[in-house]
Nucleic acid binder design. Structure first.
Lengths: 215, 215
DNA sequence: CGGGTGTTTGAATAATGTCAAACCGAGTGG
DNA sequence: CCACTCGGTTTGACATTATTCAAACACCCG
């Protein structure tokens, strides 16, 4: 990964609510997310938006089947964000020169596929409450994994209820009602932009997190 | 791609309803789908199953973030299937030796991501009828794309209504009612394992297929 | 002190799921 | 050739879940 360092153009800081890129744009760069939260999403003609993925630090952003094609989704910074910028053009060449890197990339992409499969399974296969539970738990686990098992059960949650709805395919009002139920059942509390896990095991059961695909 | 030919172990034929692999298995091989339909799916503890993807000829099957890890989903042959078999172990080495191939693989994987994003958007963001329309249209377009614009508007459809339900996240009964409506609205007819597109444009509008991601 | 964005709640409506039964066609064994 | 079963489809009545519309509320920011 140090190889990459030599190729990076620069680091860049983006404020919350700004866009890293938008659907339809042709990018010159590829990004590595250093810190902050980014939402990948698509807008349907109906006006609804589907959040495809919430990306946390470490993620690779901006890759496309054909590098010159326009992006099919948008990437919005939910919080302030820092990214490492790589020139898009250099990539094919770079990969030829360092095959190991290609292998690494393939691994990351297929990791991406798995994560998206998980999200799809969640949205397509579970009831509202299960969906929300799974979604929150997923984020909680990923964050805790990053910060190496810091046992804390409470964390900052920059997502609005509307965003959660856009992610799991439910109306914001409905999300609200579900959150109330989760609170009443003493599983999670989400308020003041803060997520507090009350009953990790109970949540796990409800959300039926089996795969430890966390990473 | 001819490089690959030298590495292939053999070709293999599988009958309909057999499994290429099951969740939890550690595979020795990676497959390239030569002909037939394969469904990738996961089973939830609730018993529901989510079809993650319907794969048609050309697809690469069996790749995983870590090649030695057990599979997270299952792959069932919907029709009789022919696959080309590659030894899993040879892959890292193979990629080191032929960097171009790595680039190709990355492209395919990211294609996979896009397709899954599309499916996710469909399931999470659209109403029942739109979902079914989009799903059927998607398959129709992919097949027609393979057989290079053979103008025929009718094709063999080996998926049961239950499978369609498992793919788009709806009950089989509901799928049935939706299919009736689609028939009554003279958009598609699906019966006797045959799919007939009556009004391509109308379907397109309903399903709001904008991206030409077909491939 | 506004004004805006996000949250919370209620009541009415629409979409989807559940249960149960009938039906239909293909294959099978008598 | 017939009865039979079996998987898949079709339909109805009803229960549940989620959406919509509307209003009140809370909070932060200028």
């Amino acid at each position: 990964m140090q190889i990459l360092q030599e190729f990076k153009t620069c680091d860049r800081i983006l404020p919350a609510h700004s866009h890293l890129y938008r659907a339809g744009e042709r990018l010159n760069d590829i990004y590595n997310l250093l810190s902050g939260w980014v939402a990948l999403y698509r807008i349907l003609e109906s006006g609804r938006r589907q959040i495809l993925q919430v990306e946390l630090s470490g993620a690779f952003l901006g890759y496309q089947p054909k590098l010159v094609d326009p992006m099919l989704h948008s990437a919005e910074c939910i919080t302030d964000v820092a990214v490492c910028v790589f020139p898009r053009k250099a990539f094919p060449d770079l990969l030829e020169r360092h095959p190991v890197l290609g292998l690494k990339m393939i691994g990351m992409m297929s990791q991406d596929v798995v994560r998206t499969h998980d999200h799809l399974t969640n949205v397509g296969g579970r009831s509202g409450m299960e969906r929300v539970a799974h979604f929150l738990l997923n984020i909680y686990l990923r964050l805790r994994h990053d910060q190496k098992a810091q046992g804390c059960d409470t964390l900052a949650m920059p997502l609005t209820q509307e965003m959660i709805g856009d992610a799991v395919g439910l109306t914001p009002v409905h999300i609200n009602r579900i959150l109330r139920q989760l609170r009443e059942r003493r599983l999670v509390i989400l308020q003041n932009r803060t997520l507090q896990i009350l009953d990790l095991e109970g949540l796990r059961r409800l959300a039926e997190i089996s795969q430890l695909y966390v990473a």
